[in-house]
């Protein structure tokens, strides 16, 4: 016989505070907790109108925000062959499939060319929704081709960084993409063509230790996480808490590691002014001075 007669009610899941708002019509700002009408947010370049919190935007939207109008996509049909045949709890090839289905992209970067304030420009934008924006051989190849395209057309290059770093599932081959892209950027640099890196949340690991830090200008969006080592790895190493705001744009600006922090709504205008300073003018992408040293033979 039981000691207690009173039978317990099974614990029921608490009813969710039912929202009477249809899904996706309103979003709550993580910055100021205010509800924002989704259309207002989109019209405001996905920046909270109240507190200027920058929501993450996808690669397509990035290109749309920068280019004047029409733009042409390049090398859209490159896909990874899973060179390591990497499998952990799930196979890498199934992760790729899921990301392709989820984003409609074939890998984690979109490269396009078009005009910015009339200046012909090549832009690469990384896609965070595709395996954390990680850089494997496809991202490495597409960005390298973007650099080479800029070199060939003698026009400026912009890379909008948004990535957790190298793609672990492609092993040392991913690591080598850092070298490959940086090598191509060396040629762009010697040819005196403008390159601007736009650092958005997050720009970390192998991406930060290669093209993200090699711009003639490195421009960050407000409060973006930018750094080489992951905060958890650092905390475990030094066995202490990290200071508030560590590895955020404003922290890096204060430490002299980036050139400027620019609100997304001002980004295009600042980039256009920078490109003009660097000698690029509408209709005359090649208006930069000839390089002082002979250019090495262009690679296929």
């Amino acid at each position: 016989m039981a000691w207690f007669k009173k039978t317990r009610k099974p614990i029921e899941a608490q009813e969710k505070p039912s929202s009477r708002v249809p899904e996706g019509l309103w979003v709550k700002c993580p910055g100021c907790s205010q509800a924002i009408y989704n259309k207002d947010l989109a019209a405001n370049m996905h920046v909270c109108p109240k507190c200027a919190h920058h929501f993450r935007v996808n690669a397509t939207e990035r290109l749309r925000l920068l280019f004047d109008g029409e733009w042409v996509e390049h090398d859209a049909n490159l896909v990874s062959t899973d060179p390591l045949k990497f499998t952990d709890t799930k196979s890498y090839s199934s992760r790729l499939k899921a990301s392709r289905a989820g984003t409609g992209l074939k890998d984690a970067v979109i490269v396009g060319s078009g005009t910015i304030d009339g200046i012909e420009t090549v832009v690469a934008a990384q896609e965070y929704a595709f395996i954390g924006g990680s850089m494997g051989v496809v991202v490495g190849e597409k960005i390298t081709r973007a650099v080479e395209r800029a070199l060939e057309r003698r026009c400026p290059l912009i890379i909008v960084c948004c990535s957790g770093g190298a793609r672990m599932m492609e092993g040392a081959l991913s690591l080598m993409q850092m070298a490959k892209i940086s090598g191509a950027l060396a040629r762009l640099d010697r040819a005196r063509l403008p390159y601007i890196a736009v650092l958005t949340d997050p720009t970390t690991g192998g991406v930060s230790a290669s093209f993200a830090m090699l711009g003639d200008l490195n421009i960050a969006e407000p409060k973006a996480q930018i750094g080489f080592a992951g905060p958890r790895v650092i905390e475990q190493t030094i066995k202490q808490k990290l200071p508030e705001g560590f590895q955020r744009s404003e922290f890096l600006l204060e430490k002299g590691q980036i050139d400027l922090v620019v609100d997304r709504r001002e980004m295009k205008s600042v980039i256009a002014r920078a490109l003009r300073f660097m000698g690029a003018t509408p209709g005359h992408p090649a208006a930069t001075p000839a390089p002082a040293v002979a250019e090495p033979a262009a690679q296929a």
Partner: peptide, 11 residues
């Protein structure tokens, strides 16, 4: 270095 990863992607 330019060719590193050439065997990891296809069109």
């Amino acid at each position: 270095f330019r060719n590193m990863g050439r065997l990891g992607f296809e069109f």
